[in-house]
Design a protein around this nucleic acid. Sequence first.
DNA 1: TGACAATAGGTGTTAAAACATCTATCGTCA
DNA 2: TGACGATAGATGTTTTAACACCTATTGTCA
Lengths: 155, 155
Amino acid sequence: MLSGLGAELKQNKPFASLQEEAALSIARTAAVLDHQVAQALKSHGLTPSQYNVLRILRGAGPDGLCRNEVGTRLVTQVPDVTRLLDRMEDTGLISRQRGSEDRRFVTTRATRKGLDLVNKLDQPMHELLQERLGHVSKKSLRALIDALAEVRATG
Amino acid sequence: MLSGLGAELKQNKPFASLQEEAALSIARTAAVLDHQVAQALKSHGLTPSQYNVLRILRGAGPDGLCRNEVGTRLVTQVPDVTRLLDRMEDTGLISRQRGSEDRRFVTTRATRKGLDLVNKLDQPMHELLQERLGHVSKKSLRALIDALAEVRATG
DNA sequence: TGACAATAGGTGTTAAAACATCTATCGTCA
DNA sequence: TGACGATAGATGTTTTAACACCTATTGTCA
């Protein structure tokens, strides 16, 4: 098992630097994982971002969150949270309510339907991750998580 | 420096598993890096995928590559290589030529303009990666690359 | 040789991303 | 108190992603 990224991409030349190899490895791995997650969610009519929103709102509880808060908590930022939430409101997964004190705020909450769906997805999503990452040792995962945190720490 | 992903996303609850934390860390880091790369390329009128295509075609040399080959070598797969190449042909970065032997194939090559552009971008992209990843030790980068290869090694 | 599967690529359509701009509401302070 | 900046969110528009389907060319084998 060579498992070299260069071989995967059929590259004939070596990477210009360790940094480049790391950056491409991150991008490649994320794309592969995201695609698989997207496929798994598709049969439930959800995109990864929508699933992320449901998890965020479940975590927020009955108080809900305003649009901006939802946006900043998304693992993958999206530049148009409004319409992301629009679609989810259309499909009945979330509800929105304009604030009465400060009318600028709109509180967003997961509906019963949204909560049921995200709860139902816990098990299959967990299994998917086990399937994809279960063979990687705890030590490697730790090293991976720590190294990625280092990468993001320049921000 | 806590640098915990949970804190970044303002999560109150711990991750359900190490696998989940790893998966979210990968997605988050990739999104951050991709966004920065996209910003850097924007002033040159390129998307990350287009830049990737130019690098692939530069590596392929004067023989070029057919559409499918370009597609499989992309770090981040795109489901519509044809129109990705269409746009690049429109802007004069690549050229396409229907094969004479087997007329099903279309050979794609980087034009002089495309080569000049990708060559010009080597330096700034290298600097960007140094800026973003330069502070991470070689050892961490190695561990990161190896762990990511492990993650992808399930197929 | 001619039907047919396989391969390479293109097209059509819908949904979502990306970016800039706009409206409404609130805080603050001269 | 009322002008003005700041904040929260929505809207308009263009581009791109995503998915299914279609056309053209070639290889194969009855």
